[in-house]
Design a protein around this nucleic acid. Structure first.
Lengths: 255, 255
DNA sequence: CGGGGACTTGAGTACTATCAAGCGATGTGG
DNA sequence: CCACATCGCTTGATAGTACTCAAGTCCCCG
């Protein structure tokens, strides 16, 4: 798939922390659970788990990018999310995998049996808060995505996506002006609830507007973060005219 | 708001289990955490929490229906979910509330300080698995909603919604043919990423098709569950032609 | 250097949104 | 007790955004 350059982007020292998660110094992170597991390598396009299979393992992504997706009738595909180095796959699952996961770039992954992961992570007073924090983070991101898919225009969706990508890259190389897109336009489209053509058109438009500029097909450079943020439309300007009922806090009835 | 009838629908004995959650017999449920808290009552339209406020409490819904929503520019509203009797609000939140919650019908609610809830639920070996199960359930439902919003047509969205409502009612009265919709068409629209008119049109169409029949504006009767399920389009018939890469499991490279 | 896949761009279409009017239930005041 | 105002909903006509179909271009890789 000609994307080998991306598989090298996050290497160096392989075990790394998620930027958002600030760990108490001196404490072991969730990743230590995987320390003794062998590293598995997946080529681009290879499947890691299948929707519907018994959820036997939890995975740590060491390197590469993956897509988590579900298929519905007529061959429609919805991408639930992308996974990057540092992410842990499978913590929110119980009986069966609810989505399939495939490598987008060549990936390095470690796995551990679900039961064993739960045993260690849930029972450890140190690791448990980290696990919960991760689940909450994942939930918050899912809710953002619901807002995006339910109420944003194509332009806002693409802008939001690019902005989120830029921010997730921020911790890596210091500069947050680079947007790396290892996934195809089709992946982006299936993630944003759009078609490949619409994604392409919006990106072209953003380039013409001078908000970003293209550095090959898989890298963008942000020229105006402010305008991009504006286009993403995350503000909450107007909050009247919508709440149906009165906006008054209710007194407590002593029951 | 003329919806008093619904506030009585689930009363009787006030503390009830969520149908989906099968608790080990003899063990105390998460709801016992709220047992000593006073009951608060909210009128239709009253706000329980506000997006952006510090997340001070966790709430147990005893009775009534509520909407959780976020506002974005131009007065657009996205409803994240509806809350019903037995639901617990706030378990997936950390620092601040990520959405506002308003009562749709008059509601009875109990609350407990976040820190105290965490202390009890997270540290109890009995309650912890229940908490995790709830979070996983919430996550699964969020992912379903992402698929719905990203890749389903208006007809499929409304059908899916009605079906989900019917299933959630199933535990209540034995029969799963009744769909109760305490929320307005606008609430449904903002939940499904549609307009009020489209929701109305689709429901009218379903009635004309004989799939459901209307019993007043807030109750539907399912005439053909099979056809409704078909219209909801949750099947996964076709799984070729979409996955870009090869669908082969990858061998483990001994690294 | 040539083939093929990913992407871009264009033209026409369709689904859903928007604008607008009408309906029906509820509740109120004359 | 009934006319009437109101609100939520339904239905109709029109418009617009994003989709579909179809070339055409660029880039990667053999």
């Amino acid at each position: 798939m000609g994307l080998k350059m991306f598989s090298q982007a996050h290497t160096g020292n392989v075990v790394k922390m998620v930027p958002a998660l600030v760990l108490p110094p001196g404490q072991a992170g969730l990743h230590t659970i995987f320390d003794k597991q062998p590293t598995e390598c997946f080529d681009s396009g290879a499947a890691v788990i299948w929707e519907g299979d018994p959820a036997g393992h939890v995975f740590e992504i060491l390197d590469g990018t993956l897509r988590a997706f579900r298929l519905i009738g007529d061959g429609r595909r919805a991408i639930i999310g992308f996974l990057n180095a540092g992410d842990i796959l499978g913590v929110t699952l119980s009986e069966r995998y609810l989505y399939s996961v495939e490598a987008i770039t060549p990936c390095k992954i470690r796995r551990i049996a679900r039961l064993r992961f739960d045993e260690i992570a849930v029972n450890s007073p140190d690791l448990r808060p980290q696990l919960l924090a991760r689940m909450r983070e994942e939930m918050a991101s899912a809710q953002n995505q619901m807002v995006l898919l339910g109420r944003k225009t194509a332009e806002e969706r693409v802008s939001s996506f690019l902005l989120a990508r830029a921010q997730s890259m921020a911790g890596q190389s210091g500069t947050r002006r680079f947007i790396v897109l290892p996934m195809s336009r089709l992946d982006i489209a299936d993630y944003l609830g759009l078609t490949i053509e619409t994604v392409s058109r919006v990106i072209s438009k953003l380039v013409k507007m001078g908000v970003v500029c293209a550095q090959g097909r898989h890298t963008l450079l942000i020229k105006s973060a402010d305008r991009l943020a504006l286009l993403a439309g995350d503000e909450d300007d107007d909050e009247d005219g919508w709440s149906v009922g009165a906006r008054t806090r209710q007194a407590v009835w002593p029951n």
